[in-house]
Amino acid sequence: MESDEQRWRCGIENAISGLERNVHDMTQLIRDMSSVQAAAPTHVSPPVQFPSRTSPIHEPKLPPPENFTGEAKQCRPFLTQCEIHFQLQPSSFPTERAKIAYVISLLSGRAKLWGTAEWQRDSLFCYNYKDFAAELRRVFDPIAPERDAARGLFSLRQGRRSVTDYIIEFHTLAADSHWNDPALTDVFFQGLREEIKDELATRERPVDLRSMEDLATRIDLRLSERRRERQGRILSNSANWQFKSFPPPQGSGSSTTMSSSEEAMQIGRTKLSKEERERRRRGATWLRKHNPHINWVRREITGWAGQCSSTCLQEAVGGQPPSESTTGVFSDISKVPPEYHDLKEVFNKAWGEER
């Protein structure tokens, strides 16, 4: 058995369906009357001639607005969409009641219940669209939009976005604020990014909002161009960067010499000679085998690979350098690459025995 509330809702839905049929019938009747009047013969009067009607006014076909469920922030956009339909399709809404009936047919949820109840009560504001829209805003959007807009404008900041995006949000809030142009100009300036404010400080400040927006947009675009130019220059310099090695120390006994204009290593710019590749290969092999431990700050070799103690040096190399009285007895270092002849002290047998 249906409850009273269910029967009441069913009655409301039936009433709305009836309203929709009535609106459709009235619209069709008006169109039929217009076509009959245009087709009916006119009384010919020789002194007076009426201009013939060439074609009916073309009205665009628009999709209906989305249903309004009673959400506060959608109230004013919904009414605006309905008013656009009234403006572009005047023949479909010839009376105030037709406009109100169309709006009620687009309500849903609690808004639908409210609109149907007011229509059935035959409320006075259901005979004038402006009064009906004002009552709809009063019920479902009671908060004054001016306050929200004012708070939004005071807290709005550009941040990292572009000035164009900042202007779009600014104008959305400014439309409900009812502020004058000087006030909007000042609060727009306060919300700009600091680097744009610095640029504006060096120029004559615009006196109106539009001029301020245009100048800030030009400055923002120029700053973006400069950032891209700097990034491109950094990438270009990185691509041309070259790795260089220091020349061998003087008196090293190296058989390979380099002129002051030559560089030991250039990546991607020169091809190594066969002799240079062989020299580097032999040097790398020797380093991997003996693995010298080098203190680059003190310019000393502090140790060698573990197998060097029993094979190359007889015992680990370390400690203080030999005294001046120690007689230098060196092993045959002819097989050692010439780049390491300046380190021949490590092959001093007398030094090793002394230690």
Results as ranks from 00 to 15, higher is better:
Q266F: 12
I30W: 01
R203S: 05
S3R: 10
S236K: 14
R7A: 06
F140G: 08
N180F: 01
N67G: 10
D214Y: 02
C126F: 03
R161A: 09
Y127H: 15
T42P: 01
R160Y: 00
I12Q: 01
F125D: 12
A201N: 03
C312W: 02
L272S: 04
S260V: 13
N22W: 03
R218T: 14
T185E: 05
S35D: 05
M212C: 03
P247M: 01
K73T: 06
L223C: 09
D181L: 00
F93R: 01
L235A: 15
T256A: 07
A39G: 08
W351E: 06
G306C: 06
L173Y: 11
R279Y: 11
F243P: 04
R299T: 12
S105F: 12
K344L: 02
N14F: 04
K197G: 02
E135K: 15
V48S: 15
S224V: 04
W351G: 02
T257I: 14
R299C: 13
T327V: 12
S259F: 08
A72Y: 00
W286S: 08
V139Y: 00
K61V: 14
K289G: 12
A15Q: 08
K99S: 06
P90V: 15
V297Q: 15
R280E: 03
F170P: 10
T217I: 06
G283K: 04
A38D: 06
Y102H: 06
G109I: 04
H341P: 05
P248R: 15
N237M: 12
R205L: 03
E276N: 05
K197L: 01
Q190K: 11
P90K: 13
M33P: 00
V36W: 13
L173S: 03
P321S: 15
Q190H: 01
E324I: 08
F246C: 14
F78G: 11
R288V: 05
R147G: 06
F189K: 00
S331R: 14
F188V: 02
L29N: 07
H58V: 06
L173R: 07
K73E: 12
L235K: 15
F86A: 13
E135H: 11
T256R: 10
Q6C: 07
I301N: 03
S323V: 05
I100V: 12
E59F: 03
H85G: 11
S236R: 14
L156E: 04
P60Y: 03
S17W: 04
T27C: 09
S245C: 09
E135Y: 11
A101S: 14
T54F: 02
T95R: 10
T270K: 13
K73F: 07
N237Q: 14
R193Q: 10
A216C: 09
H85F: 11
Q74A: 08
K344S: 10
L272K: 14
R110C: 11
D181H: 01
